[in-house]
């Protein structure tokens, strides 16, 4: 059972990572910096609970703020460039963050062991959950409570004017400017919100793995972050969740029996999915069909 709980935890954390990229992607920007914000969240939250002995929730709050502030600061120079140049700029930022943590050492003595990030060896003993007696089930429920909260927030944002403005910028920057939208401000706001969500995700990640190191936050993770919303579709937040379940649950865990052939099939299936559903697994058409299904049922039960 713990295996499945663990898998559901992974899916939850990766959903947060995917949603952080989703926010930025709504404005039409492809950012590979999300893994960097995720890393910042992980290290900040880990240091707060381990070294400063903070409880988890305020630690996550601070990691969200730090990652969000970093995203905002990175947004100003990075969002002046577009398309491939932005991809290159954000990859560079992500790598800079990773290499920072590769070199970053800050440890304190606690009894006969030293705690805290230790450069290339990583940050071990982030033992908040076991020390406070959380079971795997508790952790899973906590993660999903956070995921549900973030998803509800984004769902609500989507229906607001802010959501419409994000999509307008994503669709046609020139038209958006010409209708009076300050596109730089909109893109930086989206980047900041994305940073906040990645920071929370990273903070949770650090605590359930108990051991983080720089290699976990490389380009591969950044690619996953952006792949989820692209594969899932941008029409709403459930697309990203569906894509995470598809990739983490089915492609990575479900195909484990195939051994080394798995990776080959993994790439092939993503290409296939993108070809069959070019606007994402859960596109506007699929949503409409679901809505009809739901509403026609309701009418029938009314009658």
């Amino acid at each position: 059972m713990d295996f499945y709980f663990g898998l559901i935890q992974i899916i939850g954390v990766h959903t947060l990572l995917g949603l952080s990229a989703y926010c930025v992607l709504l404005t039409g920007q492809v950012s590979l910096a999300q893994a960097g914000f995720f890393a910042i969240g992980a290290y900040v939250a880990g240091m707060l609970t381990v070294i400063a002995q903070w409880p988890l929730v305020p630690a996550l709050g601070v990691s969200a703020l730090v990652a969000g502030a970093t995203a905002c600061a990175v947004g100003f120079p990075a969002l002046r460039v577009k398309g491939l140049m932005l991809v290159v700029a954000t990859v560079a930022f992500g790598e800079a963050v990773r290499l920072f943590f590769f070199n970053f050492t800050y440890q304190v003595q606690a009894g006969n062991i030293r705690l805290g990030p230790h450069g290339g060896e990583g940050f071990r003993q982030i033992r908040y959950f076991p020390e406070n007696g959380w079971t795997t089930l508790d952790v899973m429920l906590f993660i999903w409570a956070v995921v549900a909260l973030v998803m509800a927030g984004l769902w609500w944002l989507n229906r607001s004017r802010a959501g419409a403005v994000l999509r307008a910028v994503g669709e046609d920057e020139l038209a958006a400017q010409s209708t009076g939208i300050n596109i730089t401000a909109v893109k930086i706001s989206a980047m900041t919100v994305g940073g906040v969500i990645a920071g929370i995700g990273g903070g949770i990640f650090a605590h359930y793995t108990t051991h983080i190191e720089h290699v976990q936050f490389g380009v591969v993770l950044a690619t996953f972050a952006i792949a989820y919303p692209i594969l899932g579709g941008l029409s709403n937040v459930f697309g990203t969740l569906l894509a995470v379940i598809f990739i983490q649950g089915f492609l990575i865990e479900g195909l484990r029996f195939m051994g080394d052939w798995r990776n080959l099939l993994f790439g092939g299936l993503i290409v296939l999915a993108m070809n069959v559903r070019p606007r994402g697994l859960l596109d506007a058409g699929a949503m409409l069909a679901l809505k009809r299904l739901f509403f026609s049922r309701k009418e029938r039960s009314d009658a």
Binding site: A164, R167, A168, E171, A175, S178, G180, I181
Partner: peptide, 21 residues
């Protein structure tokens, strides 16, 4: 615009909504 540039993935109503600036 000479060549129409609407936000095609937004509804008619939303197109006016985002333009209230």
């Amino acid at each position: 615009f000479q060549n129409i540039r609407l936000f095609g993935q937004l509804t008619v109503w939303q197109n006016l909504w985002v333009a209230q600036n």
